[in-house]
Structure formats: C-alpha cells, structure tokens
C-alpha cells in the first residue's frame, strides 16, 4: 500500500472539513465538519502507524483516543448548541455576534436582541 493514497484522501477530507467549518451556517453542520477533519487526522494516524510498523501501536492507540475525545467533544458541543438554541432561538453561527462591539449601525436584517447583549 502506497502511503500517498491514504494521506491524499486524508488531506482532501481535511480540506472539505475546513470548507464546512467556514461555510456552513448551522452549528450542527459545523460540528459535522469538525468530525470530518478529525477523521482525516485519524486516517493519517493509521496510515503512518502501518507504514512505520510501530511496535507500540502509537498511531492506532492515538486514533482510538481521538475517537473517544471526538465523542466527548460532540456531546459537549451539542450541549452547547442546545444551550445557545435555548437562549437565542437560533443556531446560525453568523448570527451569534456577541463578539462584536455593542455600538453598531442598526442591522435591519438581524433579529432584535442579538449582539446587543
């Protein structure tokens, strides 16, 4: 097995994940994209583990750990998304603009109460 095949697939998956994270509006879709990126990393880890024939199986064990952490992350992430949804009634990340300055030109397209808090 040429290492270049899994590695290229992994790179493509990662880039697709990047696109998803940057372009998707729904927070749950963003989480899915993050999962794609994590999986790209996992594929890399496994491929290099096989290639390097690590006697300690570091790559595969780390893959397992990443999967576990990903599960925890999805759980927490969804909890956060739900909390945001409860308070803001939306999960669109580009409408969650509390990071911006409070004083701002009024944006008619924006529901009231957003970003003003």
């Amino acid at each position: 097995m040429h290492v270049v095949y899994p590695v290229v697939v992994s790179a493509l998956l990662f880039s697709i994940g990047v696109y998803g994270v940057l372009a998707r509006r729904n927070a749950i879709l963003v989480l899915m994209s993050v999962e794609l990126m994590l999986n790209a990393v996992n594929l890399n880890l496994v491929a290099f583990d096989v290639w390097l024939r690590d006697r300690l199986h570091g790559g595969q064990v780390l893959t397992l750990f990443v999967i576990v952490i990903a599960a925890a992350e999805v759980g927490l992430g969804l909890a956060i998304v739900l909390a945001v949804f409860r308070t803001r009634r939306t999960v669109d990340v580009d409408r969650l603009r509390a990071l911006a300055e409070v004083v701002r030109a009024p944006d008619p397209g924006r529901p009231d109460g957003e970003g003003a808090s």
Binding site: V18, L22, V93, R97, L99, A100
Partner: peptide, 13 residues
C-alpha cells in the same frame, strides 16, 4: 471585526 467567528477563522486559516 463584526463578531462573526467564522470570518475570524477564515482569516486565521
């Protein structure tokens, strides 16, 4: 700096 985190991450990446 419009508060859109996606924009920030885009710039970052």
């Amino acid at each position: 700096q419009n508060g859109n985190a996606q924009l920030y991450v885009t710039g970052l990446l």
